[in-house]
Amino acid sequence: MAHLQVQAINKVYKEHDVATNALAGVDFKMEKGEFTALFGPSGSGKTTLLNIIGGLDRPSAGKVWLSDQEITALNDSQLSRLRLFKVGFVFQAYNLIPVLTALENVEYILILQHVPRKERRERSIKILEQLGLGQLVNKKPTEMSGGQQQRVAVARAIVHLPELVLADEPTANLDSKTAHELMDMMHKLNQDQGITFLFSTHDPMVMEYAKRLVELKDGKITNDQVRN
């Protein structure tokens, strides 16, 4: 079985008796170590799909497995655990907890995981330094640029070595230079440490980084190609 398996996912939103099919029969598989971009026009269902894969939302129909665990069968508490231990999230912006420093933001995940104080501190500092963010350790999000915040967010998303990192338009709020820096960093993590990434984007420049491109339109996968 594939590392990630999405099977016949439907997601219907009902608003004022109008039903929107945000996802209409998505079948999709990913293996460990992939670096895959999800693209498509606005409203095509990218965010919805990522939320369902990450256990933030539930599909109207269909199943999702992540490393042999059927996550669509989990209850809220189990989903919470799944997100804590197996998934890393990077959102479009304002990812960080404003009252915590970069280090504390990264450390936060490990605190929730009850990692002993000394170990979690060392691991967090190590990740930040590895990613060239050593000078940000004691800075609060308000003292960082948008690009720095996103990179710290990536550090937080990988500090606990998740099975899968989901990034919903991580570069959307960044200028192209910073976007490049972020994508370089993610790419390097994928290359060097084999971390599996699934990210959505509109940006062709970002798609350039992807090893595999999946196109979504009106809630359906219309194209799925591996790039060389």
Binding site: R83, Y94, P98, I109
Partner: peptide, 12 residues
């Protein structure tokens, strides 16, 4: 939003 993030990354 902050509570959303906290919850998304696994806060109970």
């Amino acid at each position: 939003r902050e509570f959303g993030i906290l919850k998304a990354i696994g806060t109970r």
